[in-house]
Design a protein around this nucleic acid. Structure first.
Length: 420
DNA sequence: TCTGGGGTCCTAGGACCC
DNA sequence: TCTGGGGTCCTAGGACCC
């Protein structure tokens, strides 16, 4: 049977989420900012039309924003995460196999479906009716082609939110005008290399010699060429594999100098990472702690990372915090203006395989485990970070800015929208 | 005042072993 | 006198994605 994938992707997801609960934003330019209210991470069509680019620092477009009355929001991940779940739930009712690819998009297995276009339109309508969010659907025999179809649908969504590239004839037209840098998996560097070879469009890449492309872009490039030809190399990943690495880091809302404040930040990041680790029933054997200065600021620069081996792999926050502090103390330098800190945990494995070290008091290991279970339970029912380690601090003055956040419409009773 | 955060995969090169 | 070569594992770094 021929493979067929559909890629369903929400349009301007974060901005659209804000719009669902705030009708005055309709047809208005809306942008959503990254953590710390730093750069633009989502834009409504109206904001795109004003020339606001992805990743632009807010302070560079202050005047443009004011002049055009652009609505500006801090990111509200509780809201977006919840809306994402709703969208995904609707999709599962239309396709037996789904890969949730990111917060706002999923691949569906359409192989064997008789009228793919019709089904795609149904999904589009169901999501719009069920959540108020607009989506576009791209269809193709491979994931790369489904991605391209989706991009094409987005560009022409006024005509139709669905683009079907199942037929080779339709592919020729679209690929001929499709720039290589917009192909999934081809980034800035790879595009540059391809252009040096005289390859500029999707069609030119598809018709290139695979060996030649592999020489320049490794096997990743070969796969893309094959996918463009309609030969499926990238399978649908229906079960989320366990994470192999968990990163938790943030920029500070104000300059930080003191070791004590860095410790608070690191402690709370470790808590967050450990929570994720426990959520997938894993333990970790390695951790990296890093700190660095603001590279855009004319201050003495300092970047450093400490690497810490965890003798008995664990997911206990208190144990990991202790280890992280040891690392932090090794790399901390006085008199530095720190901008960001973080932890990366790796060497992740299932909890059942832990070998207790010869000198481990097995007792404390199991005790920690019990305490963590209780903590997770409380945080789950009472809300994130209701209970946390004392080492994470109380005031957390270093915390990031988030001044323009919309209410938690769907996840907090007090923030429920009111109908008048 | 002011520039995000969290992931994956692939490769090259070093360490180590026999 | 002559000082190999192949395999594996690990890690850092690059590139990419949303």
């Amino acid at each position: 049977m021929n493979t067929c994938f559909a890629l369903v992707d929400c349009n301007s997801f974060y901005a659209s989420c804000e719009r669902v609960f705030n009708p005055k934003l309709r047809n208005q330019p809306v942008i959503v900012l990254s953590n710390n209210d730093g750069v633009v991470v989502a834009r409504s069509d109206e904001a795109k039309a004003l020339g606001i680019k992805m990743g632009t620092p807010l302070h560079l477009i202050k005047e443009l924003v004011r002049r055009n009355r652009v609505y500006v929001y801090s990111s509200n991940y509780a809201l977006y995460g919840d809306m994402s779940n709703r969208v995904m739930n609707i999709m599962t009712t239309y396709a037996p196999e789904m890969e949730v690819y990111s917060i706002d998009e999923a691949f569906l297995n359409f192989s064997g479906v008789s009228n793919v276009k019709n089904l795609a339109h149904q999904i589009h309508q169901a999501i719009l009716n069920g959540t108020g969010l607009p989506v576009c659907v791209g269809i193709g025999p491979t994931k790369v082609l489904a991605k391209i179809a989706n991009a094409f649908a987005k560009k022409n969504k006024k005509i139709s939110p669905v683009c079907d590239l199942s037929e080779i004839s339709s592919r020729n037209t679209v690929l001929d005008s499709f720039p290589i840098e917009d192909i999934w998996g081809i980034g800035l560097k790879s595009a540059e290399k391809l252009k040096n070879l005289g390859i500029f469009t999707g069609k030119e890449l598809r018709d290139s010699d695979t060996d030649k492309i592999e020489n320049t872009l490794t096997v990743v490039g070969r796969r893309i060429v094959l996918e463009l030809r309609g030969i499926s190399c990238l399978a649908l990943e229906t079960v989320k594999p366990d994470k192999k690495q968990i990163i938790s880091s943030r920029s500070f809302g104000k300059p930080v100098y003191a070791l004590e404040e860095l410790k608070e930040s690191i402690s709370s990041y470790v808590e967050r990472a450990a929570e994720k680790l426990r959520h997938q029933s894993s333990v970790c054997g390695h951790m990296q702690v890093f700190v660095h200065t603001n590279r855009f600021k004319a201050v003495q620069q300092y970047f450093n990372t400490a690497s810490i081996q965890i003798p008995t792999p664990t997911s206990a926050s208190n144990v990991l915090v202790k280890a992280a502090f040891q690392g932090l103390e090794k790399i901390y330098k006085e008199g530095i203006e720190y901008k960001k800190s973080g932890v990366i945990i790796s060497d992740i494995g299932p909890v059942g395989l832990v070998q207790l070290g010869l000198f481990d008091a097995g007792k404390s290991y199991f005790q920690d485990e019990k305490i963590m279970k209780v903590m997770d339970k409380i945080n789950q029912s009472k809300g994130l970070s209701s209970i946390r380690l004392g080492s994470s601090g109380i005031n957390q003055d270093w915390k990031l800015r988030s001044e323009l956040k919309s209410p938690h419409y769907t996840t907090r009773w007090n923030d429920l929208p009111k109908a008048r």
